[in-house]
């Protein structure tokens, strides 16, 4: 009875259980040889999904219709511009980071201005914004591939005690996000807004301020992720963000956050990100082609939402 209660209160457990099962199946196939490499790769690539996923989660918490589609474009622009600014100089690393945070702040502000002033649904507002951001990225990139500064590239690709640095960064960001969501008044506000914006407004919550901060937070996390991803992969590419559009939404939902808003959790994003990466590498290990891999990924997302979404959500 208590176990059952624990499981229903903590929906994110499932994504971790699933990740562990998939990890074991993959390692068994290779006879245990790949366990360390697989774990490190999983932690690294999951970390990128975690960083964008946290931002997307805050936005989704705001309630139905709130989704940030400008995440991939923001990642691309921030990665491109930051590398251009740093220009392979180690001394500019911090400056590049601040620049990419600045880009995130501007895009987030722009998103919310469109949503608020033009009363456009967030999906369309962030979509229009992403077109513009993408254009700026194309214009500034010009097909050049600038390498990241050596120290930064070294940091992004190495680890501490066997744990990739990127994963540690994501962990720190997750802890901050968890405190924000669970322990701060801001977290209570956005959950309240997600459950009922009208009631939240009546209760005196600064709804507009909280929403503005949330869209800016999401854009900043996306641009930091773009900065790290560009440093990790040795340069920015115009399509580097594209797979994170669906991924950022998928990890949030598979992780057990209510899509209707108002009920979110951070650990689930980790479980889901690890799971999504491990499934792909398991199918690779078993020699499935790209087609089957995509089909199975789709079925898994639907299966997870079927299992996790059994309770009635209030719309």
């Amino acid at each position: 009875m208590t176990l059952q209660k624990f499981l229903t209160e903590k929906p994110w457990i499932w994504s971790f259980v699933a990740s562990i099962i998939v990890w074991i199946t993959t390692v068994l196939f290779t006879g245990g040889a790949s366990s360390l490499g697989l774990s490190q790769a999983a932690l690294t690539f999951a970390a990128f999904s975690v960083i964008v996923g946290i931002g997307q989660m805050f936005v989704i918490t705001l309630g139905p219709g709130n989704i940030d589609l400008s995440v991939p474009a923001t990642m691309t622009l921030s990665g491109t511009l930051a590398l251009k600014l740093m220009d392979v100089q180690d001394g500019m690393i911090l400056f590049g980071l601040f620049a990419s945070i600045g880009i995130g702040l501007i895009i987030g502000l722009g998103n919310y201005i469109l949503i608020k002033l033009l009363r456009i649904p967030p999906i369309i507002a962030t979509l229009s914004m992403s077109f513009i951001v993408q254009s700026v990225a194309i214009w500034s990139n010009r097909g050049l591939r600038i390498k990241p500064p050596e120290t930064l590239a070294g940091f992004a690709t190495s680890g501490l005690f066997g744990i990739p640095n990127i994963a540690l960064v994501a962990l720190v960001l997750s802890v901050i996000a968890w405190v924000l969501l669970e322990k701060s008044i801001y977290g209570r506000w956005i959950s309240a807004i997600g459950q009922s914006r009208f009631a939240a407004r009546m209760a005196g919550i600064p709804v507009d301020g909280a929403r503005l901060v949330t869209y800016m937070l999401c854009a900043v996390l996306a641009s930091v992720c773009g900065y790290l991803l560009a440093s990790f992969s040795g340069g920015a590419a115009l399509n580097m963000g594209s797979e994170y559009l669906l991924m950022s939404i998928a990890v949030v939902v598979v992780g057990g956050t209510a899509v209707a808003g108002g009920n979110s959790n951070i650990p689930g994003i980790w479980g889901a990100s690890l799971f999504m990466f491990l499934v792909v590498s398991m199918l690779n290990t078993y020699g499935f082609g790209a087609g089957f891999r995509l089909i199975l990924t789709g079925f898994i997302i639907i299966a997870v939402i079927l299992l996790a979404g059994g309770h009635k959500s209030h719309r």
């Binding site: 989704i67 669906l246 939404i249 998928a250 939902v253 899509v259 209707a260 082609g289 790209a290 087609g291 089957f292 891999r293 995509l294 089909i295 199975l296 990924t297 789709g298 079925f299 898994i300 997302i301 639907i302 939402i305 079927l306 979404g309 959500s313």
Partner: peptide, 20 residues
């Protein structure tokens, strides 16, 4: 279920079938 998630999952399925 949220339609966004179910169709998100299906988008992988259709994409995989098309690649096949």
């Amino acid at each position: 279920l949220p339609s966004i998630v179910v169709t998100l999952g299906m988008s992988f399925v259709w994409g995989g079938l098309a690649v096949l």
